[in-house]
Design a protein around this nucleic acid. Structure first.
Lengths: 210, 210
DNA sequence: ATCTTTGACAAACAAGTGTTAGCTGAAAGA
DNA sequence: TCTTTCAGCTAACACTTGTTTGTCAAAGAT
C-alpha cells in the first residue's frame, strides 16, 4: 500500500522536528536543556504542532536517541568474514577507522549518546546501554571466531571487547575537542592500545600472568 | 590572621549553595538543567542572595566542577612508593579498589564530571580534561618507575595509562546503574582488563607483535 | 459533491526563569 | 560609640517554558 500525501507530509514534518533538535544540540548542548518551543521555532512550526507528532518532550528525546542508536549501529556494521580474514592487526585498524569515520560524520550523535548514557532519564539510559552492550557482544563474537580460525587458545573475548569499546569511546571523547589532524594521532594511539590489549589477551590465554 | 565571623558565615553559605546544587543533581539531572532560583530555594536562600557568592550561574557551575575535580584528585591520590613496591598485579587491584571507593562515595560527582566532559560550556570541559590528563600523566609516571625498578624494558607507559583510565571510567559508568554486588563483578572485570593491558604492554616492549 | 479526519495554527494560562534596584539589620572597623 | 560594610531580603521586570482550547483549511473517504 502506497504512502498517502498526508502520511508523507507528517513523516517529513516529524523528521524536520528531529533535525531541528539536532541543530540546536550541535553546539554541545545537553538534551535536557532543549525546550519544546525552542525546537518548534527552529523547525518553523508552531509550538502546539509538535503535539501532533510527540505526546511530550520525553517522547521526542527518545525518538532522537533511537535514531542516534540506529546510525551508530549502521556505521559500525561490517561483514564479519572480511574482518576475520584480514588478521588481528589490520582488523584493529579497520575497527578504529570505522569509528573515526562515524565520529567525523555524526559527532553530535556521539556526544548525545555519551551524555545521555549518564542522563536522568531511565528509558534513555537503558536504550543506550543496551545498544552499547550489543556492540560489545558482536565484537566479542568476532574476536572469538578470529582466534578460533587461527587455531589458537580461546582468549577472554568479552573482556577484550569491553575494554576495546571503552578505549575507543575514551579516544572519541578526546577527539571531539581536537582538530582533524590531532584526531589522527589519537586514533593511532587507540590502535596501539587495542593491539596491546589483544596481545595481552593472547598471552593470558597461554597462561602467562603478570 | 583569624577568620572573622562574617567571613566564616559567608564561606558556610557558599558551601550550603554548592551542597544544594549537588542535592538537586543527585537524581542524575544535568548541570545545565539546574536553575538559579531552584538552587536558592533548595539552600533556603532568596534567589538574589546567590549573587553575593557567584556572579552568575556559570560561576556556580564552575565552582561545583572545581570541587568535584578536587575530590577526584584527593580520592585517587596515594603514596607512590607503596604502589611501586607491591608489584603490578596488586597495584592494579589497589588502583581499581581506590576508584570503586571513590565511586561509592561520590557517585554524583563522577556523573557530573563525565557528563560535563562533553557539555556545552568550554571552560567546564577544559577544566575536566586537564584534570583527567593529570590523572593519566601521574599513572604513566608510576608505570614507568615501577617497570624501571624491576629492570625491565620500558613499556609504552602513556598508552597504558590512557587505556587504563578509559577502562576504569567505562566500568564506572556501567557501575552507576548496578547494585553494589554487581559492581564488584564489574570491578573484577576491570582488573582483568587492566592486567591484560599491562601484560600486552610488557610483551610489546620485548618486541612481540600481533 | 459532501462529510469526516487531522495537521497546523494563534491566543491564552499558570508557572518558572535570570537579573536589577533598593531596603534592612547585624557585624567589623574607627 | 559611631560609622561603614555587606549578606540577605522583597518587589519588580521582561522573558521563556509546557500545555490546553478552539479555529481553520486541506486531504481522504463516502
Amino acid at each position: 500500500m502506497a504512502e498517502t500525501t498526508r502520511q508523507r507530509q507528517k513523516r517529513q514534518t516529524r523528521e524536520r522536528i528531529l533535525e531541528a533538535a539536532r541543530t540546536l544540540m550541535a553546539g554541545g548542548r545537553g538534551l535536557d536543556s532543549l525546550g519544546l518551543r525552542e525546537v518548534a521555532r527552529e523547525s518553523g512550526l508552531a509550538a502546539t504542532s509538535l503535539y501532533n507528532h510527540f505526546p511530550d518532550m520525553d517522547a521526542l528525546g527518545l525518538a532522537l536517541i533511537d535514531s542516534c542508536c540506529f546510525r551508530l549501529r549502521s556505521a559500525m556494521e561490517y561483514e564479519r568474514r572480511s574482518m576475520i580474514e584480514i588478521g588481528p592487526a589490520r582488523a584493529v585498524k579497520e575497527l578504529v577507522g570505522r569509528f573515526v569515520r562515524y565520529l567525523n560524520d555524526y559527532e553530535n550523535d556521539f556526544r548525545l549518546l555519551v551524555q545521555q548514557r549518564l542522563g536522568s532519564h531511565d528509558r534513555y539510559r537503558m536504550r543506550i546501554q543496551r545498544e552499547l552492550q550489543l556492540l560489545v557482544d558482536e565484537l566479542a563474537e568476532d574476536v572469538r571466531q578470529a582466534v578460533a580460525s587461527q587455531g589458537r587458545e580461546p582468549v577472554p573475548a568479552e573482556q577484550e571487547a569491553e575494554a576495546a569499546i571503552a578505549i575507543m569511546f575514551g579516544a572519541g571523547i578526546s577527539m571531539l575537542d581536537n582538530t582533524v589532524t590531532a584526531r589522527r594521532v589519537l586514533a593511532d594511539h587507540a590502535c596501539l592500545q587495542l593491539e596491546m590489549m589483544a596481545l595481552g589477551g593472547r598471552m593470558m590465554a597461554q597462561g602467562t600472568r603478570l
